[in-house]
Measured scan of single mutants.
Amino acid sequence: CETCDRYISGRVLEAGGKHYHPTCARCVRCHQMFTEGEEMYLTGSEVWHPICKQAAR
């Protein structure tokens, strides 16, 4: 997992080739988790909900 550096077994979320436990992938702006299939916007090592990234501009 990109966030906690632990092995992932079971469900995995992926953004930009990086992998996360579903509970570790959180938006840097709103701190909410991502749901399965939800779009993730990756900037460097930061993961955003698209609407949060747009609002931060």
Rank of each mutant, 00 (worst) to 15 (best):
S45T: 13
G44A: 10
E14Q: 09
V12P: 13
Y7A: 13
P22S: 03
C27Q: 02
R6F: 00
E14M: 10
Q54K: 13
T43V: 11
H31W: 08
E14D: 06
W48G: 07
R6M: 07
R26H: 09
C52P: 01
C4D: 01
S45Y: 08
H19G: 02
G37C: 08
S45A: 13
E39C: 05
E38F: 00
V47D: 02
A56P: 06
E14P: 06
H49Y: 01
G44E: 12
C24R: 02
E38R: 04
L42H: 04
Y41V: 13
E38T: 06
H31P: 01
T35E: 11
A15R: 13
A15G: 05
G17A: 04
H19N: 09
S9L: 07
V47N: 11
T23S: 09
A15Q: 15
M40G: 04
T35D: 07
G16H: 07
G16F: 02
E46S: 07
L42P: 09
F34P: 12
S9E: 14
A55G: 13
R26E: 09
Q32E: 12
Q54C: 04
S9M: 04
V47A: 08
R26L: 08
A15V: 15
D5C: 10
G16S: 09
A25C: 11
A56G: 09
C27Y: 01
R29M: 06
K18C: 04
G17L: 01
R26N: 06
A25D: 04
E36C: 08
E36W: 03
A55Y: 11
Y7T: 12
I8Y: 00
F34Y: 03
V28H: 13
E36D: 14
T23N: 07
I51A: 13
T3H: 03
W48P: 06
A56T: 06
F34N: 06
G37N: 15
V28C: 09
H49G: 02
A56Q: 09
C30T: 06
H21P: 00
G16E: 06
C4T: 00
C24Q: 08
R11E: 14
R11N: 13
L13H: 05
R26Y: 07
Y41S: 15
Q32Y: 03
T35F: 06
V12W: 05
D5G: 11
R26V: 10
L13W: 04
G37V: 09
H19K: 11
E38D: 07
R29A: 13
H49N: 01
M33W: 12
R57T: 14
E2D: 15
S45G: 13
E38P: 03
I51D: 13
L42Y: 14
C52R: 01
A56R: 05
T35R: 14
C27P: 05
Y7N: 14
C1Y: 01
S45P: 04
G37K: 15
G17Y: 00
Q32A: 12
L13G: 06
M40L: 10
V28E: 07
G17Q: 04
T23E: 08
V28G: 08
Y41M: 13
